[in-house]
Amino acid sequence: MVALTPETDPTPDAVAGGPRQRRKLTGYWLILPTAVWLGLFFVVPFYSLLATSLFDPDGSVLTGYDVTYHFANFGHALSEYWQPMVRSLWYAALATAFCLVLGYVLAYAIAFRAGRWKNLMLVLVVAPFFTSFLIRTLSWKLILGDNGWVVDALQTVHILGSDNRLLATPIAVVAGLTYNFLPFMVLPLYASLEKIDGRLIEAASDLYASPSRAFFKVTWPLSLPGVVGGTLLTFIPATGDFINASLLGSPNQRMVGNVIQDLFTTTGDYARAGALSVILMLIILVLVLFYIRKAGTEELL
């Protein structure tokens, strides 16, 4: 090592295109597919959306659209459509809460109590995906319909008045959201519950924890990564959903997704639709960042 003379040690830069330089480039080649994918499917659409939100609001299909940095679009969109926006967040929060309760019970049962039925039950959780989202929501329209057996049964036991209905109420919309996004809650919950070592629960009960104490002190904290993952996977798409509100609700249950859809397809008010989309995205981003910080999941994930 010490005896190496400068003459026998060619500097790497002297050998152009040598192995060292090639190695330097390998990393960039490897991220190329991902970078192209990200550019094509995220950066370009995102830029297009952002540009749309800053269109001149007076543009039309005939006169064309110009990016005029018309930031007032945001103000207008918010002042006009704050109600569907708040409603979206509220419905999504309700649906997420219901999903969490139902999903936790289901995931817990599959992870700890299903025994040899575990795999079958997991398949059953995913099975609804074999049918289209739209068709399943339409069937809920039939089930919750005014002449359906659910309404009949509820009217018979006087939970529902004789001229009250389920369809076209917030109940139907939230129920639809809960139903449609339940698998997104169950799967992450199952994944983190299934990883919990049963001996930890035994250890807790050995250390004077009753079953409920053991659940809240050991099982629940250890399942938090699944809870965070599941709530995000449910809340984010539920906020932007418009199928449930349009099929199961009435104009009174309009969510922000419906508004954006109308603005884009019916009214042709691209600027306002774009602005509303960007606002929705920002609100979700802030909420999620706050939530993750609050849940302290860096350690758990």
């Binding site: 001996r199 930890l200 050995d206």
Partner: peptide
């Protein structure tokens, strides 16, 4: 019930609570 017995166990694989610090494990 196990949690009412004046008996404690040192488990084969220790079964320490991964989400708690050492002192919280001990204080459990």
């Amino acid at each position: 019930k196990p949690y009412r017995r004046p008996v404690n166990t040192v488990f084969q694989n220790y079964a320490l609570f991964p989400h708690l610090s050492i002192s919280e494990n001990v204080a459990f």
